[in-house]
Write a protein that binds this DNA or RNA. Sequence first.
DNA 1: CAAAACAATATTGTGCGCAATATAATTTTA
DNA 2: TAAAATTATATTGCGCACAATATTGTTTTG
Lengths: 142, 142
Amino acid sequence: MEELKLKNQICFPIYALSREITQLYSKHLGELDVTYPQYLVLLVLWEHATQTVNQIGEKLFLDSGTLTPLLKRMEAKELLTRTRSTADERVVEINLTEKGMNLKHTAACIPSQIFDEVGITSEEVDMLRAFTNKLFAYNTKK
Amino acid sequence: MEELKLKNQICFPIYALSREITQLYSKHLGELDVTYPQYLVLLVLWEHATQTVNQIGEKLFLDSGTLTPLLKRMEAKELLTRTRSTADERVVEINLTEKGMNLKHTAACIPSQIFDEVGITSEEVDMLRAFTNKLFAYNTKK
DNA sequence: CAAAACAATATTGTGCGCAATATAATTTTA
DNA sequence: TAAAATTATATTGCGCACAATATTGTTTTG
């Protein structure tokens, strides 16, 4: 059964590569004292001042089961604040602290460093993003 | 800082896609009662009769911290056996049980089912394969 | 307006993933 | 050949992921 051989798997390389990338980033993120998923949350918050847990989850495709404890760890590191909205008390608003905002300067060079190291073309990035969108579109409707 | 915007991230789509794949596979693997990482171990063992923990780890890029408990769970499900080698007592040899081998027939159709469902074209498979080979070749050498 | 439906976040439980360390067996080497 | 180095697996501890469920607050509806 040729289709079950590991070398013919198309999804396994993505799975393995994803973990390699997380490790690659971890080396660079060590000095910021954040993990890769925490770094992704910082990316969202550097771009959008105030975000609810839901809004972060939609952008990163993560649910509250992952985000709630992750955000609490970032709050403990004083990178962000978690505040119940007064307008709607179901909502928790996430805001960066001064410390969290300042990490942006240190982090700015990381993507280009990794981009250079790995050497991906913009065509490959576009292809990958289109492919990701296709899978997500399928999965959210079913 | 344009390079820190989420939409310009290179590695985030790979990270998101990897999780997406695991979820897609999970739906199909439910009837086999195995997880995606456990399915990858099955792929290795369907292809290579007897494997040590090390050999599986080299093929899947996983270490004993991940594999030992995972293999114990698969042993508990009676999919495989874990036996200390008599020749070298440091080594644990993994062998499929009859039950583990028989899952191959049920699993054979899964990859093509997923491609069909999501509507992945052969062009996309080729692009994706070229892309992952490129990045993975880079990442494993350094 | 009270009950039902809905929405946002939290909690629980399970299974990875991996760094760091431990343990035990084997091989190398002084 | 005894000590040192190496190898193979196991253990520990922490941080995701995610399904399932609970909790609390808001909106809808009969």
